[in-house]
C-alpha cells in the first residue's frame, strides 16, 4: 500500500504507468474493437487520416485499416517484449546463480559462455538466429532472449557471490540441505531484486529489437507489428509519411512508458531499502 503510494509519488512513474495502462487496454480490446483480420483490405489505398471516420487513421498502401493495425501491433509488441524479457531474466538468473554458487570450473565455463554471447552484438545475434530458424513469434522471442540474458546473468552472479558467504547459507548446509535447493530456494530469491531492476531496460530493448527485426522483414509474417508497419510505410514515405510516423510514435511512447514505470519501481524500492 505505502509502496504503491511511493511509486505514484513521482510524476515520471505516473506518466509511465498511464502509458503502459493505455497500451495494455489497446492490446486487450484489439480483438473486440477490430474483430476482423487487421490485414484485410478495409477501404481505398493510401487514404490519409482524419478524412473518413470509419477509418480514423486512414489506410496503408494496400488499403488496410491503420488504426486496427496499430491496436493489433500493440499486442505483438507487448507480448514479444514481456515474453522475451521474462525469458532473458529467467535464463540469466539461473545461469548467474549456478555460476556464482557453484564456483570453480562451473563458474568458469558459464562465465566464458556469457562472455561469448556478450561479445557478439546482440542485434546481429538475433538477426542470425531468426534467419537460420525462420521467422515466427516464438523464434523472435527466443532470438531476443538469447541476446539479452547476459546482463541479468552477471548481476545475479555478483549478488549470489556476496550472499553465499552469509551465515544463513552456512546454516542451510549445516542442516544438510541439497546444494541445488540452497542455490534456488535460499540464495536466488534474495539475489533477485537487483536483477529485476534490469527488467524495464530489457523490456524496452526487446520491443525495439522486435520492431527492428520486423522492419527488416524478419518478423512473424502472420502478425501485424509496428516495425513491419514502419517498413511498409517506408516505400511511400514522401507521399504518405503518416504511415511510418503513427507506428513510430507508438513505439517511442511504449519504450518511454516502460522505462519511466521501471524507474519508478526501482526508485520506490530504493527508498524502501534505505529506510529499513
Amino acid at each position: 500500500m505505502s509502496r504503491l503510494r511511493r511509486f505514484l509519488s513521482t510524476p515520471e512513474a505516473v506518466a509511465g504507468a498511464l502509458i503502459l495502462a493505455l497500451l495494455a487496454v489497446m492490446a486487450l480490446v484489439a480483438p473486440l474493437l477490430f474483430s476482423g483480420d487487421p490485414q484485410a483490405i478495409a477501404g481505398p489505398a493510401l487514404q490519409p487520416p482524419f478524412q473518413d471516420w470509419s477509418l480514423p487513421l486512414g489506410t496503408d498502401r494496400l488499403g488496410r485499416d491503420v488504426l486496427a493495425e496499430l491496436f493489433h501491433g500493440a499486442r505483438t509488441s507487448l507480448a514479444v517484449g514481456l515474453a522475451a524479457a521474462a525469458a532473458a531474466l529467467l535464463i540469466g538468473a539461473v545461469v548467474g546463480t549456478l555460476a556464482g554458487f557453484a564456483g570453480g570450473l562451473v563458474d568458469e565455463v558459464l562465465m566464458r559462455v556469457t562472455d561469448a554471447f556478450q561479445t557478439v552484438p546482440s542485434f546481429l545475434l538475433a538477426l542470425a538466429f531468426v534467419s537460420i530458424v525462420g521467422p515466427s513469434l516464438g523464434v523472435v522471442v527466443a532470438a531476443i532472449a538469447l541476446s539479452a540474458w547476459t546482463g541479468p546473468a552477471r548481476v545475479a552472479r555478483a549478488e549470489v557471490l556476496s550472499i553465499r558467504e552469509r551465515d544463513y547459507v552456512a546454516g542451510a548446509r549445516v542442516i544438510g540441505m541439497h546444494p541445488l535447493e540452497i542455490a534456488f530456494r535460499e540464495v536466488l530469491p534474495n539475489a533477485l531484486p537487483p536483477v529485476l531492476a534490469l527488467s524495464s531496460v530489457i523490456v524496452a530493448a526487446a520491443i525495439l529489437t522486435e520492431a527492428a527485426l520486423s522492419f527488416l522483414g524478419l518478423g512473424d509474417p502472420n502478425r501485424v507489428t509496428w516495425g513491419g508497419m514502419i517498413a511498409e510505410g517506408r516505400t511511400v514515405l514522401r507521399t504518405a509519411p503518416f504511415l511510418s510516423i503513427v507506428p513510430g510514435v507508438a513505439l517511442v511512447l511504449t519504450v518511454l512508458g516502460v522505462y519511466l514505470a521501471g524507474e519508478g519501481v526501482v526508485e520506490s524500492t530504493a527508498v524502501r531499502r534505505s529506510l529499513s
Binding site: 551465515d167 544463513y168 552456512a170 549445516v174 544438510g176 540441505m177 534474495n190
Partner: peptide
C-alpha cells in the same frame, strides 16, 4: 548431508543465521 543431522550449529547473530 545425512550425517549432518547429528552435528548442528547455532550462530552468533540470530538474524543473519536465517533466510
Amino acid at each position: 548431508r545425512a550425517r549432518r543431522a547429528r552435528l548442528q550449529m547455532v550462530f552468533q547473530d540470530p538474524l543473519a543465521a536465517f533466510n
